[in-house]
Every structure is written in C-alpha cells, then in structure tokens.
C-alpha cells in the first residue's frame, strides 16, 4: 500500500513525459532512419542510414557541429566568469540587498527571448547604439563588427542565460556554512586561499549544474543565434530548423538533431565526470 502511493503520485508527470517527451524522441529516432523523400515529400518509403551518411559527408553541415559546441562552451565559460562573482556577492549581501539583487538577476527572464535578442541587434548593429556613439565621438570611422559573428552571438547568449548560471551558484553558495570560511582562516588561510581551497570547491555542485544548464541551453538555442548571427553564424540548431521547415528534409533534420543531442550529451557526461565530487 504505502509502497504504491508514490508511484501513483508520479503517474501524471510520468504520463506527461512519456507522451510528450519519450514518444516524440522515438519518433525523431525513427524519422532519422527513414529514406529521403522525392517530389516534395518529406520522406520516402523504407529505412536506412542515408540521413546520417549525408550529414557526415557534407562539410557544410558537419563543420557546424564543433562550431556549435564550441559556442556553447565559450558561452558557458563567459557565464561562469561573470556569474560567479555576482553570485558570491549576492550570497554575502545583507538580507535587504539580497532580495533586490536577486530580482535584478531574474528580471531578464520576465522579457521574452525574442525581444531580448532583438534588443541586442539595436545595440550591436552597424548603425546601432554602440557604433553610432563611438562614431559620433570620433573614436572610430568604420563601424565595429559587433554582430553577425561569433562575438555577438556569445555576448547575447551569455546575457540571455546568465540567470541560469547565477541561480544554481547562489543556491550552492548560500548553503555553505559561513563558519567553514572562518575555520579555514583560523587555521591560517588568507581570504584568497579560503576561496581557492574551500569556498570554490565546496560550491562545485552549483558550478556543475550551472554549467550544464547554460551549455545545453546555449547549444540548443535558436532565436538568439538566428537574430544576432544572421546568415553568417550557422549553428547546428539553425541548420536543423532549416532542414525540417525550409527544405522539408525530415530524416536529414532528425538525424542532425540527434547527432547534436548525442554530442552534447557526451560533453555533459565528460564534464560531470571531470568535476565528480566524491564527497557528495
């Protein structure tokens, strides 16, 4: 009786996941194994590895994959470097300030991702706020290339996903007993050493989940790289949407999506293993 109750309680969530996550995944997998269609049909009869073969044969598609993963890694690194001091500051701020800072960190999430990304185009464009100001001040004569390149994409992605780094870090840092730092100092550690040897390693669970979260969100994001990268920066995610919607190549798009998912999964697993905490 008592053993069955929890199963009953997770049934709605399990049902939701089965019908709207598992089944679609299986569908994608099956679709990726179908043959390409002819005469405007999205796929043809029979099964095979055609779609995968095409992906690995065409450099245009294949080269986008490491590039996409690299953009994800750089975005994650930028978020960590920007987010950690921020989280540390919020975690040690007084109660009143903490609420306010928390709100400020969360506030970008209140605005849709399309609008936020579009906002960056206003700032970064050739005739955008930054270039226009610098030009008016006489600092530059030609506009700086701030968007339609990796720089702009990483910048915008980092902005969009920073809260997803800060929140787990904050949760982790706030859970640390302040006496631990004091104990380290009483044992002869300077502030810097306390951070290096105690605070940072103890906050690793937050670093881990923040990094994984930002990485998977960054490589799978579509709107931001599409708006900021334009036609120049083609991430695998953009190519998947192109294949599925514009070119009507369902098996090929599915195969590409799966390759991206598996690659990202491998990177996440490698990262989790590298940062494994025996003490948890």
């Amino acid at each position: 009786m008592s053993r069955r109750r929890p199963l009953l309680l997770i049934a709605p969530a399990a049902g939701l996941i089965f019908f709207f996550v598992m089944l679609p995944y299986i569908n994608v997998l099956v679709m990726s194994l179908r043959m390409p269609g002819a005469d405007g049909k999205p796929y043809g009869p029979g099964f095979g590895m055609e779609a995968y073969a095409q992906f690995f044969a065409e450099n245009y598609y294949l080269s986008a994959l490491p590039h996409t993963l690299w953009l994800g890694i750089v975005t994650t690194a930028v978020c960590l470097v920007l987010g950690y001091p921020l989280a540390l500051h919020i975690a040690t701020a007084s109660r009143r300030w903490r609420g306010l800072l928390y709100g400020i960190v969360l506030s970008p999430l209140l605005v849709g991702i399309v609008i936020r990304s579009y906002g960056w185009t206003i700032l970064l464009g050739n005739t955008g706020v930054i270039n226009k100001t610098l030009k008016d001040l006489g600092i530059i004569t030609r506009p700086l290339k701030l968007m339609y390149n990796d720089f702009g994409v990483v910048l915008a992605l980092a902005h969009v996903f920073l809260p997803f780094m800060v929140l787990p870090l904050l949760a982790s840092l706030q859970g640390i007993d302040p006496a631990i730092g004091q104990a380290a100092r009483s044992l002869g550690a300077s502030r810097l050493t306390v951070f290096r040897r105690v605070t940072f390693p103890v906050s690793m669970p937050g670093v881990q989940s923040g990094c994984i979260l930002v990485f998977v969100l960054a490589i799978s994001s579509y709107v931001t790289p599409a708006l900021i990268g334009g036609m120049r920066v083609k991430t695998t995610t953009i190519l998947v949407v192109d294949a599925l919607i514009d070119q009507f190549l369902w098996p090929f798009g599915s195969a590409m999506a799966l390759v991206l998912a598996v690659s990202a999964g491998l990177i996440v697993i490698a990262f989790a293993m590298l940062t494994r905490m025996k003490w948890k």
Binding site: A179, I180, R185, P201, M204, M277
Partner: peptide
C-alpha cells in the same frame, strides 16, 4: 592582527568541517 595570523585553534558549534575533504 588578521585571524590567520593569530595562531588559534577554533571549534565551532556547527563543527564547520570542510565537506569536500
């Protein structure tokens, strides 16, 4: 003097052990 220069040993109510060590 800074705490790390005082040559003290301290035991805290919460023990404050380093969980990762």
């Amino acid at each position: 003097k800074l705490p790390e220069k005082r040559d003290i040993g301290m035991v805290f109510q919460s023990y404050a052990l380093f969980p990762h060590l």
